[in-house]
Amino acid sequence: MDYLQSLRMFVKVAELGSFTNAADQMKVSSAVATRSVASLEERLDARLLQRTTRSVTLTEAGRLFLDRVRSIVEEIDDVEGGLLAATHIPAGTLRLAVQGSVGAGYLAKLLSTYSARYPHVVPQVIFADGPISLVEGRFDAALTSDTYPHPGSVVARTFARLDMALVASPRYVPNVRGITELADLERLVILSHEDGATSAEHDLARRWLDANVPHATHVRANSSDMVRRMAIEGMGVALLPAALIDDDLHERALLRVLPHVALPSMGLSIAYGSRRNLAPNVRALVDFLVEHSAYDSLKVPVSGQEEAALAAND
């Protein structure tokens, strides 16, 4: 039996904890999946998986072996996928799920360039307010934060980081008088994005807010654009990706609050089902996003006008 295929099957079974699910993803029968791993164990003269009627778990030897071979299999699949993509023109529909509205403004700019480069690809962008399942949603890929809890069978590649910014509308700025440190924010209304699909431990911005302004009045929405609009309407101080509000800062619809305080940055990841047999349009998107991930372009500097506008209201 093909050794590389046995390695792939072992990794997939270990990630999913199921021969049946691994066989489905690899498009083979459960019997073939079982024989594939059995042949690998025979070759190594070691039991890699402990099977029961209810579960499949790694033995100690299996854990050690998985740690070494997973990256090797991924590298081989990555090379194979790149060669296949190079010989096929990206075309067809590309269904892309987006976690909440994370990185929406940044993504829109990139997709414009991507579509110009690959005119035969038709992107379909679906904003998901709940959990994202590539299989159930029939998505080719998903754009999420780098802390999103994807299942082990999903490949997630971080391609950019977005600086965060504390901002408020000029009409809310009078409420910011005397704000010189984070503790002073406790008496204000804090607006922030909260994705119901993830818990607080996977939400970097929420963890930061809960740690630094736990007693403030928090107003949350599962859409970053909704948080942005509430901030523009003067409802409070918002914590948002700077790239999303670049134009608002330039037009002074929003001004920075505590501009020199260190804030968290949010990683953006592109997630897809497998490195192997990756469709050319998905491969092209992954490579494109990595190619265009210029971190410096995602940072919006504080302008002297912003600081002067804030100071004028102190």
Rank of each mutant, 00 (worst) to 15 (best):
G178P: 04
G178V: 05
E181R: 15
E181N: 11
E181Q: 13
E181L: 02
L182S: 12
L182E: 08
A183V: 09
A183F: 02
D184Q: 08
L185E: 05
L185S: 07
L185K: 07
E186W: 03
L188R: 09
L188Q: 12
I190L: 15
S192Y: 06
S192V: 02
H193I: 03
H193Q: 06
H193G: 11
E194H: 14
E194V: 13
D195F: 04
G196K: 06
G196R: 05
A197G: 15
A197R: 02
T198C: 10
T198M: 13
A200P: 08
A200K: 07
A200L: 12
D203G: 00
A205P: 05
A205T: 12
R206M: 15
R207H: 01
W208D: 10
L209Q: 09
L209E: 05
D210F: 05
A211S: 11
A211W: 01
N212S: 14
N212C: 10
P214D: 10
P214T: 09
H215Q: 14
A216H: 03
T217A: 04
T217Q: 05
T217S: 07
H218D: 11
R220F: 09
A221S: 14
N222G: 15
N222L: 10
S224G: 15
S224Y: 12
D225M: 10
R228H: 11
R228L: 14
R229V: 10
R229Q: 15
R229Y: 08
A231V: 04
A231K: 00
I232A: 00
I232M: 02
E233D: 07
M235T: 00
G236F: 01
G236I: 03
V237K: 06
V237P: 08
A238V: 09
L239N: 11
L239A: 11
